[in-house]
């Protein structure tokens, strides 16, 4: 009903009033677009300049690479002088392994907490939740000592274990809330059919798949982007992740602008593509998660 009123109103209003309303409607767009430009411009500037010759980078930084200014020299330097391929592989191994194990282990624990009212259930839930607020970094001195004792320094395994521990608290906390919403009848029916508790777990997991997807994305990004633990626990060239590799490469090649711009672009583009594919889902899941 409000719609029809709105549609009728402007035609009967004086021009100046309509114009004011138009401006009022435009204003929010101007702010959002303005801020959007502030966000996109730096990223855009780095990407376009990575495809230019050194002269053009300095001479015409704001221009899109043309036939005369186009150059891949920076990428050639990065590919030949750094171990980018190794860093990428390391990051992928660490992130994927930590992600899968976190989701599996986290889902199992969350299921047990949600499903069985055993003694100490609430206390255990609280114990696992401490890690949500207390950053794991504060235990770095102890973690490094432990890694030395277990001979896990400069291994991807060490990083994977740390990242699982880091991601578990939030994973368990959120998933257990989702498991609680699964209808009881379903599980009881399976139990009557003689299904084991393990079987019931694997029956229920697909029902919380959206939550698992969202947690997966949010577990991945901080792991992929982390600088601290690769720097502290696995800084060797063989185990460096992309984030650490880029940081060290850039430190060495500060004055080679082509190489710096290209390596930044190489490190950025995979994440941006991933983000553009999943952004809707991601933002929706935080929005819904925050509403709970």
């Amino acid at each position: 009903m409000t719609n029809t009123i709105d549609r009728h109103k402007p035609s009967t209003l004086p021009f100046i009033y309509r114009f004011r309303r138009f401006l009022e409607g435009l204003f929010p767009h101007l702010i959002l677009m303005g801020y959007g430009i502030i966000v996109l411009f730096p990223i855009f500037l780095i990407i376009i300049n990575s495809f230019k010759s050194r002269k053009a980078i300095f001479g015409m930084p704001f221009q899109i690479p043309g036939p005369e200014t186009f150059s891949l020299i920076g990428y050639e330097t990065v590919i030949s002088r750094s171990n980018f391929q190794v860093y990428f592989m390391n990051s992928i191994i660490v992130t994927v392994a930590a992600l899968i194990l976190t989701l599996l282990i986290g889902a199992m624990a969350a299921f047990a907490l949600a499903e069985y009212p055993f003694r100490g259930n609430a206390l255990l839930g609280l114990y696992l939740a401490i890690g949500i607020m207390i950053p794991i970094r504060l235990g770095t001195v102890g973690i490094l000592k432990l890694m030395v004792n277990l001979s896990l320094v400069n291994t991807l395994m060490g990083l994977i274990l740390i990242y699982i521990a880091q991601a578990l608290p939030l994973t368990v906390f959120i998933l257990s809330q989702f498991f609680r919403q699964v209808p009881k009848e379903l599980k009881d029916a399976a139990r009557i059919d003689g299904a084991s508790e393990y079987r019931i777990f694997f029956l229920v997991v697909p029902l919380v798949r959206p939550a698992i997807g969202a947690i997966g994305i949010f577990t991945m990004i901080p792991i992929w982007n982390d600088l601290w633990f690769p720097l502290v626990v696995a800084p060797s060239p063989k185990t460096a992740t992309v984030t650490l590799g880029v940081q060290q490469f850039l430190g060495q090649f500060v004055s080679d602008w082509n190489a710096v711009l290209s390596s930044l672009t190489l490190a950025m583009v995979p994440i941006l593509i991933f983000y553009l594919i999943f952004s809707r889902q991601m933002i929706r899941s935080i929005t819904e998660g925050a509403l709970k």
Binding site: A109, T140, G142, A165
Partner: peptide, 27 residues
Amino acid sequence: FPVYILVFLAPAVIIYTIFMVFPLLDS
């Protein structure tokens, strides 16, 4: 205590305790 509850909880509790809680307390 039912075994399956232990099986479900053990991996998370063990990894969390060894790699997060213990190093924090040790620090």
